[in-house]
Amino acid sequence: MIINGKEISEKRLAVLKDEISKSGLSPCLATIIVGEDPASQMYVRMKHKACGEVGIKSAGITLSSDLKTEEIISEVSKLNSDPSVHGILVQLPLPKHVDTRAVITAVSPDKDVDGFHPYNSGLLFSGRPDFVPCTPGGIMTLLKEYKIKTAGKKAVVAGRSVDVGRPMAALLLNADATVTICHSKTSNLEEEMKSADILVSAIGKAKFVGPDMVKKGAVVIDVGINRDENGKLCGDVDFEAVRDKVYAITPVPGGVGPMTIATLMENTFTSAKKHAEL
């Protein structure tokens, strides 16, 4: 079974557009991009395009790459105090000289639609999530849409990043899976991955996961966005080599990526509704 993230995201965005239209609210997402990284610019354009499609206003702020941490935080603070802005997204990565943690922490938790603020991370890990990071949140939506059970299943998350690996593990744990996190220092990586009923790969190595690393009948979620030896877009998983061995698998592209943006839109509308109640 191919898990079609593009199809599910389009369905959910259509529902969201209708909900926003009926709500009478004017949700607004503000993005901050520092520097001129082409990949970051592309991702921000995709997010703004999605905003336009569902009826969310968007404001883009582009800052010079030579700005200091304090200057970037000053821009974040302006958005925090702007009542017309409901979601704030700081596009990562930031330039190396910038204190990324300080910038992320400067975002007001109630506008942290990326779910990266320590406050929202704490809620997630305590089992009371509010804003959830968009990629893991989108993956959980896919599992629900395809009626893939998590309770009692062994889930292995390959990767321990704060934006995907760690929150993914917390969400699966909250959904009653038994969770193992693997990373670059895991000594028996192949054995751990092959034991998974649900395998989430977020390690960033093109076609790293082959059929020998996957259990027969497993569900494989590929978060990787890489280029193969021919420059073609691919995931962490060798899709063609693995697909016939597993029960379900996400393709790259068209799997997890569209759900990340859909979840960001949903988080922004959720924030707008919360602010309307204040």
Score class of each variant (00 low, 15 high):
I249Y: 11
L124R: 06
S84Q: 13
E229N: 13
K154T: 08
M213N: 06
V157Q: 06
L123H: 13
I261D: 09
A151V: 02
V252I: 14
A169P: 05
D110E: 05
T100C: 15
K232V: 14
P133I: 02
T268V: 13
G235C: 10
K194M: 07
A196W: 04
C134A: 08
L92S: 05
L143Y: 00
V242H: 14
A170N: 04
V256I: 12
A151P: 04
I225S: 13
P27K: 03
L63A: 08
V90L: 02
I181L: 05
S84W: 05
A248F: 01
I61M: 10
I8N: 07
S64A: 12
L189Q: 06
L92V: 05
S201Y: 11
N267P: 06
V246Y: 12
S121R: 10
P136E: 04
A206V: 09
L89M: 07
D82R: 11
D222E: 14
G35K: 03
Y247E: 13
R160L: 07
H183T: 01
E229W: 08
M46K: 14
V98F: 00
Y43C: 00
M1C: 11
V44L: 14
V162I: 15
I33G: 15
A39K: 05
I249Q: 08
V103W: 05
K96F: 01
N4K: 06
S58E: 09
I56W: 02
L278P: 09
H86S: 09
L13K: 15
R227F: 07
G87I: 03
V256R: 09
C134K: 07
K273G: 09
G122W: 04
H86N: 13
D37C: 04
V237K: 14
P93W: 02
K245S: 11
V220T: 07
K194C: 13
G127L: 00
G257D: 06
A59K: 15
D228A: 12
V34S: 03
T141I: 14
M46N: 12
V85M: 07
A50D: 09
K57C: 07
